[in-house]
């Protein structure tokens, strides 16, 4: 009976290098997946410097958040298909009218929406503060929003001080804004 000799095994050093590369690759992949999961599960940004963004409004105006430093900024994420957003639409407009002369800016960020319906929504609720689409969902990703409506309050130093998940009413809006506008 003939016995074919087995092919020579790779040198131990080469084998060790291969294993090292394999395990390193797996570890890097696991770290990447872990980081992605962490970001997904982290929830909205709720403190620290507010993520900077640029909003191009439906009227074509370009607004940089950084340019609003020194003002209190209310950033509201909404969509025309969002029923709970309708509950707070009138409140936000009333808040804008009340606080606009006290150094408060309101910005509406239209999340994953279609423009004709968004414009119709703004007309329907008589919203006059600047609103624009969240192009490429970049703004909502920077704030890590989980849905709409969500409202973020930024103080005069550009620090995120409060997040409201869900529709906001006038009492709550005042309770958040009054301390922020008080010199």
């Amino acid at each position: 009976m003939s016995d074919t000799p087995a092919p020579p095994l790779p040198a131990p050093r080469a084998r060790n290098l291969g294993r090292l590369l394999l395990w390193s690759g797996l570890a890097a992949l696991m770290a990447l997946v872990g980081f992605g999961l962490y970001r997904t599960q982290a929830g909205p940004v709720s403190s620290g410097p507010a993520p900077d963004f640029t909003l191009i409004t439906f009227d074509g105006e370009t607004i940089h958040l950084a340019d609003l430093k020194g003002q209190v900024v209310v950033v509201n994420f909404w969509a025309s298909w969002c029923k709970p957003c309708e509950e707070e639409a009138a409140t936000l407009e009333a808040g804008w009218q009340k606080y606009r002369d006290q150094g408060v800016s309101f910005l509406g960020v239209d999340y994953v929406d279609t423009e004709p319906e968004a414009r119709a929504y703004l007309t329907r609720f008589g919203i006059t503060y600047p609103n624009g689409p969240d192009l490429g969902t970049r703004i909502s990703q920077a704030f890590r929003i989980r849905g709409v409506p969500e409202t973020y309050f930024i103080d005069r130093q550009g620090t995120l001080v409060r997040v409201k998940i869900g529709p906001i009413d006038m009492n709550e809006l005042q309770s958040i804004l009054d301390p922020l506008v008080t010199p």
Binding site: A79, S80, W81, V112, D113, T114, E117
Partner: peptide, 24 residues
């Protein structure tokens, strides 16, 4: 895929947002 309805293709997604997208 609509980001609002994760893992549901737009052609079978039943939400209003997806209906608006299909109209677009």
């Amino acid at each position: 895929y609509c980001p609002v309805c994760e893992n549901v293709p737009l052609d079978v997604c039943p939400t209003q947002a997806c209906a608006q997208w299909r109209q677009t």
